[in-house]
Amino acid sequence: MTAVEAPSALAEVERRISELLDAADAHTVHEAAQRACVGGKLLRPRLLIAAAGEDAPRDLVVRASAAIELIHAALLVHDDVIDHDDERRGEPTVASWAARGARSTGSSAGRAARIGLATAIVSGDVLLVRGVAELARLDLDDEPRRRVLTIVERAMVRAAEGEHDDVVLAGGSPHEEQIELLLERKTAEYSFRAPLELGAVIAGRPAEAVAALADVGLRMGVLYQLRDDVLGIFGDEAVTGKSALSDIRAGAPTLLATLASRDPAWQRVGGDYGDPAADAGAGSRIRHLMRASGALDEVERRIASGADALRTSIARLPVEQALRDELAGLLERCVERAR
């Protein structure tokens, strides 16, 4: 499965996702789960497909890719609940969509909100269990099956830790070491390292290649999240599909905020960072300071230097050139993207 064949493989992944979510009982929970899987970039399947290479059994690769995308969708649904977000990918979040539906049928505002939260939580659970079950059903020998499930277990535990720390550290003054660990747990482990490891294990690649791909995935995921954090403050809402005030109101613990908070002028605007009622004026003041303090430039510098180092590591990977080329291309998309 070369990079040229990836688009057709992704189409198969989307069909498999539809099959896994096509429940006979047209329950609202299943409809919500289906909505959560619409509009994604399919980044994790792309990584898994690339790491598997052209000789891996296509059915296994497609099914594993669909599974990891369902798990990703589950985490997004739960993340939106935790962050009280109303919009995802330019559309209402599952909780918001379900709450609006309840209001349209006569529920009070309070009851509608409760229904929205319940729908989001349980539909996320459905996505999660179906993703894990699909991985468990893969026709693999005992050892690779054990490795696949161990990889997913580790990634999910790390993601849970990262989600927890993201809330605990919000609005505070975390150290750079804490931010680095958060970047790895929150995003890099499950979104980059795990898909590359899964593809490599399914393909039967040697341990050296699996470990090298895992390292590349972790580092690429950190760069991806650094770019995401920049877009969360400076991105175009029409492109990102996310409010440019969301991270500001949440006091998101990012490297950008940590660096900006070292400037004495932060004392004048820091109170707006983490204020749920922060308005456009507050957002403008915070963005101005992040630029004036040099925080934005420093984050951009670290993204650029990290990408340079990673390009060298990718070029030295003990894998075929097609995979190195695919990873190099994905790296560029990660650090230069607008959404």
Rank of each mutant, 00 (worst) to 15 (best):
P174N: 02
R205G: 08
A212W: 01
A194K: 03
L213I: 07
A194R: 05
G235S: 12
H175R: 15
R219E: 12
A188P: 02
A188K: 08
T187C: 13
V230C: 13
R227M: 13
Q225M: 10
V216D: 01
A211H: 08
A212Q: 05
V222H: 01
A211L: 11
Y190H: 15
D228I: 10
Y224T: 08
G204K: 09
R227T: 13
E180D: 15
S173P: 00
A203P: 05
L231K: 13
A212K: 04
A203T: 07
S173E: 13
E197C: 09
D228A: 12
M220P: 02
E184F: 10
E208Y: 00
V216N: 03
R205T: 11
L223F: 07
S191H: 03
Q225R: 08
F192K: 04
E177G: 07
L226W: 09
A188D: 08
I179W: 02
Y224G: 07
L182C: 10
R227W: 10
L198Y: 06
D215M: 00
E176I: 14
V222C: 09
L226F: 11
E180C: 07
D228L: 08
A194H: 02
L198N: 05
Q225K: 08
G217T: 00
A212V: 02
L183P: 02
A194S: 10
E184L: 14
G172R: 09
K186Q: 08
R205E: 15
E176L: 15
R219P: 02
L196F: 07
D215K: 04
I233Y: 15
I202N: 02
L198A: 06
G172P: 02
S173Y: 14
E184W: 06
V201M: 09
G204T: 12
I233Q: 10
V201L: 06
G221M: 07
A200Y: 02
V210M: 09
G221F: 02
L182V: 11
R193F: 00
D215T: 11
A194N: 05
P206K: 07
A214N: 01
A211D: 15
G232S: 13
G217K: 00
L223P: 02
L183N: 14
L181V: 13
A200W: 04
F234N: 12
E208K: 12
L213A: 03
L198T: 07
R219F: 00
E177P: 01
G172L: 06
E180Q: 14
G204V: 11
S191I: 05
G221E: 04
